[in-house]
């Protein structure tokens, strides 16, 4: 009996030995990029950071769910999201507090919350990734809407708009073009032969393997395919005269209300919003597009305003639209 109890007592002892961090960051960005940045912050400040990362398995809402569930006793100080919609949801639910970082002054106002609850930086663009070895008579669509044209649809793919940036993208389109036209377009997309994948990385892989010619995805996934030596290239859609422009989805960062280390949280936000970190993210293999004016972008990187026209977006309205359309999208794509 005593021998049987000993391991349990040890377990209990081990459980109490948890060392408290000086700062807790919930981060939905690729750990391979966020970890080095956090390490630099730790070296410079001497603060110990507990970096909590997210996974696709829980459909990128693992940490968001945790933030909601922990709202009575918040454990996170900062939420660093790799997109924007969930961040706005958190802000609207009262889970964030305003913080206007001095480091964010160089970031365009359209990527900052007017009330200071969140700030956007280092964006990804929603682009068409296409193979460069397509037959001469087969050209990728130049507009998102053209993905479902009968002669093009069987050669292309996109992720189901249920999660991540694809959901945000179609919520933005729904706001811009009207909910019913977008739902109708999605309905037709399902019938058109367009390949509907489980995520952006997934459709990128299909194009990479030559399963189909092009897909709607994000620049970071496209960059990985190109860097891994596959014959692919990027096309910024909806650049024609009067077109909507290409959607840019920024990383966002916010301070959690009632977090245990608000001061350290502010210091971390200042650091992450610095041009230096944006430059690091741009140089990384996910090639995040810097939003600060004047950040040195790697050679070949296309920049908004200079190389392509970004879509103008009211993010608050997009987040609201997302909540309204998600159940409709789910009905459409879960059968």
């Amino acid at each position: 009996m005593r021998r049987a109890l000993a391991p349990l007592l040890l377990l209990a002892a081990a459980a109490c030995a948890g060392e408290e961090a000086d700062l807790v960051v919930y981060c939905a960005l690729d750990a391979e990029h966020s970890e080095p940045i956090v390490r630099i912050f730790e070296e410079r400040t001497g603060l110990r950071v507990d970096l909590q990362t997210d996974t696709e398995q829980a459909k990128t809402v693992g940490l968001v769910q945790r933030l909601f569930q922990e709202r009575e006793r918040p454990r996170a100080d900062v939420f660093w999201n790799n997109e924007i919609a969930h961040t706005i949801r958190l802000a609207r639910a009262g889970l964030t507090v305003p913080y206007r970082s001095p480091a964010a002054t160089g970031i365009p106002a359209s990527f900052r919350d007017p009330d200071g609850h969140w700030t956007g930086f280092a964006a990804r663009a929603r682009i068409i990734l296409h193979r460069t070895d397509l037959p001469a008579d087969l050209q990728p669509p130049r507009r998102v809407a053209d993905l479902i044209r009968p002669e093009l649809a069987p050669h292309g793919g996109m992720a189901a708009p249920l999660t991540g940036t694809t959901l945000t993208h179609f919520a933005a389109l729904s706001l811009r073009l009207g909910r019913e036209p977008v739902l109708d377009w999605l309905r037709r997309a399902k019938e058109s032969g367009l390949h509907i994948g489980r995520g952006n990385a997934h459709v990128m892989r299909q194009v990479r393997e030559g399963d189909y010619g092009w897909c709607l995805t994000d620049t970071d996934d496209a960059a990985k395919a190109r860097r891994a030596g596959y014959p692919v290239a990027i096309l910024f859609p909806d650049q024609e005269e009067g077109g909507a422009g290409t959607l840019l989805i920024p990383n966002t960062i916010c301070l959690i209300a009632g977090g245990p280390h608000p001061e350290a949280g502010r210091r971390f936000i200042d650091f992450v919003l610095s041009p230096e970190v944006e430059a690091m993210l741009a140089a990384g293999d996910s090639e995040q597009i810097p939003l600060h004016a004047g950040v040195a972008a790697p050679p070949g990187m296309k920049l908004p305003g200079r190389d392509f026209r970004p879509m103008e977006v009211d993010w608050e309205a997009v987040a609201e639209e997302l909540e309204a359309v998600l159940p409709r999208f789910q009905e459409l794509f879960t059968e």
Binding site: G18, D30, A31, E32, D50, Q52, T53, D54, T55, E56, Q57, A58, T60, G62, L63, Q65, R66, Q69, R75, G199, A201, M204, R205, D220, D221, K224, S286
Partner: peptide
Amino acid sequence: ILLPAANHTAAVRYFNALHFA
């Protein structure tokens, strides 16, 4: 993914990397 200390484990790193291709 919902337990703080379990976040620093192999499964979370594995699926994080899977998500980011």
